[in-house]
Simulated scan of single mutants.
Amino acid sequence: MNFYDKIKWVLGILMVFVLIITTNLLDRNNFVRVKDSVVSIYEDRLIANDLIFEISNSIKQKEIAIVTSNADFFKVANESENNNIEFSIERYEKTKLTPEERTVFDQFKANFDKLKTKESQFVQNGMEDKSNLLKLLFEIDENLHDLNKIQLNEGRRQMSISQKAIDTVELFTQIEIYLLVFLAIVVQVIVMYNPKKEKSK
């Protein structure tokens, strides 16, 4: 094998090698996007949604107790419900919050702090004035509803990112197949090409 043939082989192999490396890096990037999206849907959306559900249940228990003026609830169960909500808040803060979500969540925490203060006043005043407390609970319900909608919207957005990444992988796979066929033909031409030497006169 002469020097020219060696160069042809090296060029052919390098072309295939560059194509494989390039497509591999692109595929890897897209798979990372899919993985991050799936992890985000679970850790930042499904878990957050479950925490919102747990908090909502505790808030509903409080609403029922206030409407029915259930003194036993405030003596026995209210502190436990507050502890459950605070634990859920701590876990929720460990998820990845969007700027909009952070705003709503901060509003919810501020309202919850007000709620604890007003509950104490409500019990001390003989459970008579319910209107302000029920109004605050309505605001908390709105906060939780908004947080729930954010989870749905963010879940959809992450699914869209994941789908786009999968579509990109499929597209590049098709392109890769066509390029490999094309390069195989080019390599064959390079290897088989044998320029005729001019005949000496």
Rank of each mutant, 00 (worst) to 15 (best):
F3Q: 09
Y4P: 01
L11H: 01
I13P: 01
V18M: 14
V18F: 14
I20D: 04
I21F: 11
L25I: 09
L26C: 09
L26R: 11
D27K: 13
F31M: 14
K35D: 13
E43W: 02
D50F: 09
I52F: 11
I55Q: 02
I55V: 06
S56V: 02
S58D: 10
K60H: 08
Q61H: 11
A65G: 06
I66D: 02
V67D: 07
V67N: 06
S69L: 05
N70I: 03
F74E: 03
K75Q: 11
V76N: 12
A77N: 14
N83H: 11
F87Y: 15
E90W: 04
L97C: 07
P99M: 10
P99W: 10
E101R: 03
V104W: 00
N111Q: 02
K116R: 14
T117M: 04
S120F: 07
S120P: 01
M127S: 06
N132Y: 04
N143K: 06
N143R: 01
D146I: 14
I150L: 11
N153T: 01
N153C: 00
A165W: 07
A165N: 11
D167A: 14
V169R: 03
L171K: 13
T173L: 08
I177C: 00
Y178A: 13
F182D: 04
A184T: 07
I185K: 04
V187Q: 00
I190M: 14
M192T: 13
N194F: 13
K199Q: 12
K201C: 04
